[in-house]
Amino acid sequence: MKKIFAFIISLCFPGGILPAQQPIYPALPDSLQVPLEETVREITYLDTIPYYTRLQGFRLGLDLGRSMAFALQEEGFSFAGSIDFEYRNHLYLMAEAGYTSYELLRSEPDLEYQYLSSGPFLKLGLDYNVLKPSNPYHKDMVSVGVRLSGSIFSQEVNDILLRDGYWQSVVTGSIPPRNDLSVWVEAVLGAKAEIVKNVFLGASLQGRFKLYSSDPKELMPQHIPGFGKGNKGFNIGASFSLFYTLPLGKKHYTYLKDLEP
């Protein structure tokens, strides 16, 4: 029966996008006296299941770094949350959403304006865990991933004061609010560690490459929510997050102690 189940699993997940499965050899406590034949049976069983998941259920995340970074500024705020789950072994699907309100205020002799940018952003993608687990219960991960991201945001410039040095004239004005769209792709290098059961701390580094931005000539985006500096085609981002796993899923793997005699 188990062999049939393993065969069905292998048909469902042919592994076209994944490298060959590394066999998992569970670390057995020395005190555990296991008959040799049972150990062999267990290892053989795990080897016949090409895919299994270690993360049970959905993992919810809160980007603490983003909120703290904006809290240190006088103007603006930002927050973001994420959800991910292990779609196949080592492969995680994830979604992140957030909102940023950004303000840039300059009041110098030749530079006087208030720039405002705000809007939601959404990131969808996947992470691949490259950390070889020491056992199936080991949920820490080091991952590489990719995201397709976008934001529809509003921006405007107020309190513009222009002085003309030759004619000695002064002009005030504003650039009215307008909505713009930006799309970018992110390459992500991240790590997550389970600090207590189902609670993870994570950090990641993101390289963000802009694919498209409506970039109106009269209003160059200064800050794109989720992307960062809008006048650049590439930005580096970092995040520091807290995660909690909702223990909703069923176990998809079998470990020695779970085997029936």
Binding site: L104, L111, Y115, V157, G173, S174, E218, L219, M220, Q222
Partner: peptide, 9 residues
């Protein structure tokens, strides 16, 4: 009016 960037204003 045009907004050119943080440093250009």
């Amino acid at each position: 009016l045009e907004f050119l960037g943080e440093k250009c204003g």
